[in-house]
């Protein structure tokens, strides 16, 4: 088992933890923050799968634009889930 496989294992575990955090969280602002963390880890996985153009697009869209549209939607509706 090479060390790149160990790195991929750690990244997949962090990604599943972030997804479960984002699903179970009652505060929707922190759920949007969890999707941003999923996007960061996903970009590194694309980089390790030898697809740097896809990683570049995922970095630009997932970290910046997705967070902005979720925050605007939360601003116009409720922040906390009942």
């Amino acid at each position: 088992m090479s060390w790149l496989a160990v790195l991929v294992l750690v990244l997949v575990v962090v990604q599943i933890i972030a997804a479960l955090f984002s699903v179970w969280q009652k505060d929707l602002l922190l759920a949007a923050l969890g999707t941003s963390a999923i996007s960061v880890v996903l970009s590194v996985l694309f980089y390790l799968l030898q697809a740097p153009d896809v990683a570049l697009t995922e970095a630009a869209i997932g970290v910046a634009l997705s967070t902005i549209i979720f925050v605007i939607a939360i601003k116009k509706t409720d922040r906390y889930e009942e």
């Binding site: 602002l29 980089y47 570049l56 970095a59 970290v63 910046a64 925050v71």
Partner: peptide, 24 residues
């Protein structure tokens, strides 16, 4: 050499999301 561009985009754009959350 191509792979450095991804880090360049991260360095330029990664602070915008945090800036939006802080303004909220």
């Amino acid at each position: 050499y191509i792979y450095i561009d991804v880090a360049l985009i991260y360095g330029v754009l990664s602070f915008i999301g945090v800036l939006t959350l802080a303004r909220y």
